[in-house]
């Protein structure tokens, strides 16, 4: 049995529902679960606004160190840090599970995942690289940006229940307990950079370079899209899943807030994919869910006298830089 899950807080439930709807349309045999990094009882979401998918709240998967993790992580870090803990939960607690797939909530699956399930019969891991061919310009993001954040995109990872994959999950849990931070100077970029080690420390890994897998703003330079007879294609192959990272339906003219390479004017081939996504999100009550702040967000003080602080710190910072 194949299980797919995503992770988000209540503010991203429109995205998670859109992903779930797409899986239901294309892969009805796959069990889909939304891992919720939030508390429904505190947020008091009315029952008619709850998604029609299985919801598994973070506090119910038995992470013994959850309190500590909440204390040292912000919301992005926490949402990514709990990924291996959910993998372990599914492997250990869901009977008959053989494959577990993680998708970021801002993904739409457009095709049956038959090829992925076939790959998981032979491999313990399936990953997708950010780029499969070089980018020659230095716009954002370019090759350099993935060198200290991770060459594989962790918006997608699929694991087969096997001793190798369980060993990886256990190692990943240990790393992400306290080193799931964004600290580029020290080699840390949430859960993603760690996975550079997967093909080194473990052996049975498949890196899929099909242009229709995990197509997203970072690899648009190598992928041309088209839409004919209800099917989205890329480089003449079907789009299997598209990752709408950094897209906000409130700013429909922006492909992603994280890139400056393309506009929709330059890439009219993307319009059909994004029009569909926007309408799906609006239908799934994006504006409503966006109002919720996450239960796990730490309260942070807004400090006074910032300029005075900067002025006082200056001589010490200069001294420190000289040492």
């Amino acid at each position: 049995m194949t299980l797919a899950f995503t992770l988000c807080s209540i503010n991203y439930l429109a995205q998670a529902r859109t992903l779930g709807d797409s899986l239901r349309r294309t892969n009805p045999h796959i069990r889909f679960i939304i891992g919720l990094v939030d508390r429904l009882d505190v947020a008091q979401v009315p029952p008619d606004m709850l998604p029609d998918f299985e919801l598994l709240e973070l506090h119910n998967i038995g992470i013994s160190s959850l309190q500590e993790m909440c204390e040292h992580y912000n919301i992005t870090e926490l949402n990514t840090a709990v990924k291996p803990y959910f993998f372990r939960y599914f492997f250990e607690r869901v009977p008959q599970v053989s494959n577990v797939i993680y998708f970021d909530p801002d993904i739409i699956v457009y095709q049956p995942l038959t090829e992925l399930e076939n790959l998981l019969q032979k491999h313990d891991f399936v990953l997708t690289p950010h780029l499969t061919t070089p980018i020659d310009d230095q716009l954002t993001p370019n090759e350099l940006h993935h060198l200290n954040t991770g060459v594989y995109n962790l918006g997608f990872i699929a694991l087969r229940k096997s001793p190798e994959a369980l060993d990886f999950v256990k190692w990943w849990e240990e790393k992400l307990f306290d080193e799931c931070k964004i600290d580029l100077c020290n080699g840390l970029f949430v859960d993603q950079n760690w996975v550079n080690f997967a093909p080194i420390f473990w052996n049975n890994i498949h890196v899929e370079k099909h242009p229709g897998w995990n197509a997203a703003y970072w690899n648009l330079h190598e992928r041309r899209f088209s839409f004919k007879e209800g099917t989205h294609s890329v480089n003449n192959l079907p789009v299997v899943f598209f990752h709408y990272s950094g897209y906000d339906p409130a700013k429909p003219n922006v492909i992603s807030k994280y890139q400056d390479r393309f506009t929709f004017e330059q890439r009219p081939d993307l319009v059909a994919l994004f029009d569909f996504y926007r309408s799906e999100l609006l239908q799934n009550h994006n504006a409503y869910y966006r109002q919720f702040s996450c239960f796990y967000i730490k309260p942070e003080p807004l400090y006074k006298y910032l300029r005075v602080r900067e002025f006082l710190k200056k001589p010490f910072e200069k001294w420190l830089a000289k040492l």
């Binding site: 702040s293 710190k313 010490f316």
Partner: peptide
């Protein structure tokens, strides 16, 4: 010395005078 200087900088940055606590 480096440790001490960083300590002073952190104390100035996080001296507990603030407008409000966000949630």
């Amino acid at each position: 010395l480096k440790k001490q200087l960083q300590g002073i900088i952190d104390t100035i940055s996080y001296f507990p005078l603030y407008h409000k606590i966000t949630k």
